[in-house]
Design a protein around this nucleic acid. Structure first.
Lengths: 206, 206
DNA sequence: TCTCTTTTGTGATAAATTTTATTAACCATC
DNA sequence: GATGGTTAATAAAATTTATCACAAAAGAGA
């Protein structure tokens, strides 16, 4: 049986397609082509068609893709027709910036709870949230059925905090800590590390 | 002529190797093996050996790699033996968090100037920086010989701001704006967009 | 010195990803 | 309803990337 296992690299491009389509839609466009979408994203038209065709036939020959329909399909594929609640762990400068960011809603996500371990911060406000004690993480996460975490803690504690997060049943972690996390294979981890990306670019500078 | 053109995907892994080696060094380790390094990073030992061998022979059979030497070599390859000054553009919540972040120094980078276009912000302080008028971007960037920019501006203005940045001669941009930038081929752009990465992960959630 | 274990560097092989080329469908216009 | 210009879907080919497997080198211990 040919299991319909789609390469992760393809899945990773879908959110970019969706983002571009949502922008087009906001600009009043109703349809597009793989060519136009590719030009915007710097991706070949053939690749976009091939990626999308892994999930179904969403376009029409001669016409292209109906934007609202394709957006709807991509949102279903990425499971963001519902809103995912997020536990934000770490109420430092970066955590504060993220808690204030308004761009998650409408896009499938919502910061639901903010945690920290510092006595001075627990109980204080950050945006609309009251900072919770990380000691209560498991209880609160389970109560609220949270399935996604964002980590904005120092690298020195990232591994231990991540293990605590996994104990709560969470299986998706977006980590801003500049260190690799060693977690069970069924936990999905993504990293954001500006230094890594800066160092990647300087390789090419004169 | 077989130009020694190294795949970008290989270059992109070097900063991760460097980061892990620096951590090991701080922990007092003097040597390591491709196996140990790979275990930490979740990368196969063979891939690490092959990647490093593209740049030279840094290890010794039977012994592995001398950590200080390999760190030094990677820093040279990535051109971070010197410190790169960065222009940070956009003094919102995220820009403020980045301006406060202490982790760039020691790793090849330093925020040198902070810009914004808002009357209320220009002249005010953010960390140790005085927020500059974006109208002065080209003059100040050229004066300070800045070659790297970080963009923390709204998506709606990211393209136009990026074009202004490129006019100053900058050829490396790390953008936090959730939109693709259309720039000349000789400009290196990296993106940080948590929403894209969150949506990538939810594909795999139940 | 000899043997055993470890570990690199690398050619060969395998797997994966992307591109190319082809076919068939769609639409507007005449 | 025929024609020409578009465009998606897809099979095949090409390219890129990752893994495998092994010779050679190093060091430790007998």
């Amino acid at each position: 049986m040919d299991m319909n296992l789609i390469p992760d690299i393809v899945v990773g491009r879908l959110p970019r397609y969706l983002q571009a389509l949502q922008r087009m839609s906001e600009d009043g466009h109703l349809s597009t082509s793989s060519q136009e979408l590719g030009d915007r994203l710097g991706i070949s038209a053939a690749q976009i068609r091939k990626d999308l065709s892994q999930f179904g036939e969403f376009g029409k020959q001669g016409t292209g893709y109906a934007i609202p329909y394709l957006i709807d399909q991509l949102e279903s594929i990425l499971k963001i027709k519902k809103v995912w609640d997020i536990a934000l762990i770490g109420a430092g400068d970066l955590g504060r910036a993220i808690a204030h960011y308004q761009g998650f809603s409408n896009r499938g996500f919502r910061i639901a709870l903010v945690f920290d371990n510092s006595r001075e911060k627990i109980g204080k406000n950050i945006g609309n949230f009251i900072i919770q004690d990380i000691a209560d993480l498991e209880k609160k996460v389970r109560e609220a059925h949270i399935q996604v975490a964002m980590l904005t803690v120092p690298a020195s504690v990232a591994q231990i905090v991540a293990e605590t997060v996994v104990k709560t049943g969470i299986r998706a972690i977006l980590s801003y800590a500049p260190t690799p996390l060693n977690l069970p294979d069924d936990v999905h981890v993504e990293y954001i590390d500006p230094l890594i990306q800066l160092q990647h670019m300087t390789y090419y500078l004169g």
